[in-house]
Structure formats: C-alpha cells, structure tokens
Amino acid sequence: MRSRERRVAEAVTAYLARAGQHPEPRALAHVVGAAAGAASCALVIDQQRYQWGEHPGPWLEHDISYGDVVVGTLAVAPESVRRLPAVAAVLGPPVATIRMAEGTDRLRREGDAATRALADERWRAAAEMELQRRGLERDLHDGAQHNLVALRMSLALLEHEISAGKGRERVPDLLAQLATAERVLLHTAAGILPGTLVADGVAVALRTEMAKHGTVTFDATEVRRRYPTPVESAVYFVVLEAVNNARKHAPGARIVVALRDDDRGLEFTVADDGPGFSMTTPNGGLSNLAMRAASVGGTIEVHSQPGAGTTVRGVVPL
C-alpha cells in the first residue's frame, strides 16, 4: 500500500475506533478527504450524498464493495488526487454498516408514517361518522319536526272542534299529515332529501312546504338559479326550523318567508309578528340555525325584542 493510501487507511481506522458501531458518513468523508490531501470528499450511499468540502470537481470516483456487493461510492476532488482503491476497500465494512443503519432508520420512519396515517384515517373516519350523526340529528330536528309540529297543532284544533260537536270530517286530512310525517322520517333516516328539493330546487321545495300553512306568506320571485345541493339543503332546513320556531313560540302569528339571490349569494328571511323575545335569553334553536348555515359557509342574524316579533336573516355567499 502506497504511503498516501496507508495514511488514509490509518486515519479511517482511528476514526472508526472512536466512532464505534455508529460512524457518521459526513465525518468519515472528512477523515478520508483530509488524510488524502483532497479539497473535497464525498460518500454516496443509497443515492444519498454525504460531502465534506465545497470543491466543484471534476471528481475521481471509486466503487466501495463489501463482499460481492457495491454498497457505495467514494468520490474525491480535485481529480488530480491519486486513485485510492485500497482506501475504498477499507471503507467497505463501515459503509455497509452505515447503509444498513440508514435502511433500518428509513424503514422505521416509513413504519411510523404508516402508523400515523392509519391513526389519522381512523380519526377522520370517526369524525366523519360524528358529522353524519349530527347531520342526521339536525335533519330529523329541522325536517321531520316541521311536519310533527303541524300535526300537533292540527290535532289541538281538531280536539277543540270535536268538543263542539264537529270536525270529524278533518280526520282524513290528519291521517294524510301523519303519513307525510312518517314518510319524511323514513327518508331522513335513509339520507334521502325531499324529491322537490333535489329535482326543482330550494325555492320550489319551500313553496310546497309553506303552502301547507295558512299563516305563512312565501316569496321566492327573486331566485333565478340553482345552487349546489349542500347549499340548497342547508337553506331549506334552516328556513323550516325558523318557521317551526315561529309557529311554536308565536302561535297564530303571521309569518313571512322570503328567498332571493344576488351578487352576494343566496339570502333568506323568516319574519313573524309574534310576541318576540329578549336576545339576552339563551336559545338553543338559534345555535342550531347558525351551525346549519355555517356548514356551507353561511351566516345567520336574528333580531327580536319583546312585543316586536322576530326576524331571522341569513346568507350563503357565492
């Protein structure tokens, strides 16, 4: 072995004795380069380059083998540095060790990433299930309850009429309302939106619902286009619940529902001339309205005071 290669081999052996079982590839390249009198030295292991020095090259390269397998490449610059085949042979075992350690670490990182991805996927699935559960809960509350409230009020009126000896002719109408409420419950549980909402849009669907209530006036003459199904569904259920709230808390009050679209987006208003309420009083129904609108990027404003009725305004932006 020539004196330069002997010097480099001795420097490598000394470094390995200090590093033990965990040689650091960039430090090893530094030891080789400095002992060989190179301006720069690099070890290339599994396409990863560990370089000492900033010489631009050209580079003189040697394969590093361990047994019959090439485990890396030794590169020195400038190219005028004499070839170092014996040094490349000495580097075989430590480079094989580094390669194995790097491979093990890569597999560990990939395993950790896969574990995190699986955990994230499980979390997303659980979150999606919770969102679907809450969505079903809101649909039951806002949609089916609308029909049940109407049925309850009709029953109360029928009870009063029967006590006065009349009203039996309204029984078939009540049975029809009961069948409608049952159908809405089944469709909601199955995730099926009202047919008119899907086929004809929110304006037609709300007009169909509002026509069932003599105290409700509906105007959608300024709705000129369709919106994505999630938007129309959210507005549909928000308006239904707002009307429900008015009918429950302001029985007999006149209710005006308006729907319009403009350059802001899809806007809606539900106003009644009932007794109103204090805005400082907690109201869970209003929170439900806001959550439903927010699910499609919309906002809700509620204005009310005792003796002045209640107005619910909302908009889902384009």
Rank of each mutant, 00 (worst) to 15 (best):
F237Q: 14
S304K: 06
A77I: 11
V216Y: 00
A42Q: 11
V32Q: 02
L136W: 05
L197W: 06
A164V: 12
D261S: 02
A126F: 06
D139N: 13
V81F: 04
V243N: 00
A205E: 01
A234T: 04
L136G: 13
G37Q: 02
A176V: 14
R6L: 13
I98E: 00
P85H: 02
Y66F: 14
E110W: 05
L84E: 00
G309P: 05
V302C: 02
V202W: 06
T115A: 15
G214W: 12
A27L: 15
P194S: 01
T97R: 12
H146R: 08
F218K: 04
T188V: 08
E24W: 10
S233I: 04
R168L: 15
A308L: 12
R99F: 04
A125P: 03
V270E: 00
T180C: 12
L118H: 15
M291E: 12
L91D: 01
P78N: 03
H141Y: 11
R133H: 10
S163C: 15
G265H: 03
V184I: 13
F218W: 06
D261I: 03
E24L: 04
A38D: 00
A176K: 07
Q145M: 14
E159G: 15
V243W: 00
V184M: 07
L240Q: 07
G57H: 02
A127L: 15
A126S: 11
S3N: 11
M210Y: 03
A253T: 03
P228N: 04
D262H: 07
G67I: 02
F268V: 09
V231D: 10
P194A: 01
H22I: 09
L193F: 12
E24Q: 08
R83N: 10
P194M: 00
S163E: 14
H141E: 07
S304M: 03
A29S: 01
V312K: 00
D63G: 10
V239E: 00
E110S: 09
E61G: 08
R109D: 08
H303R: 14
L286E: 10
R4C: 02
G274A: 13
A211K: 01
A250E: 07
A127R: 14
N288K: 14
G297Q: 05
K248H: 00
H213T: 09
W52Y: 02
G135C: 05
C41F: 03
A38L: 00
L84N: 01
L91M: 08
G33V: 07
L148K: 11
V71C: 04
V270N: 00
N244D: 01
D200C: 14
L148T: 07
D273E: 06
P251W: 09
V31M: 05
A38M: 05
R134M: 09
H213D: 05
A14F: 13
R82V: 15
G72Q: 03
P58L: 07
A199N: 14
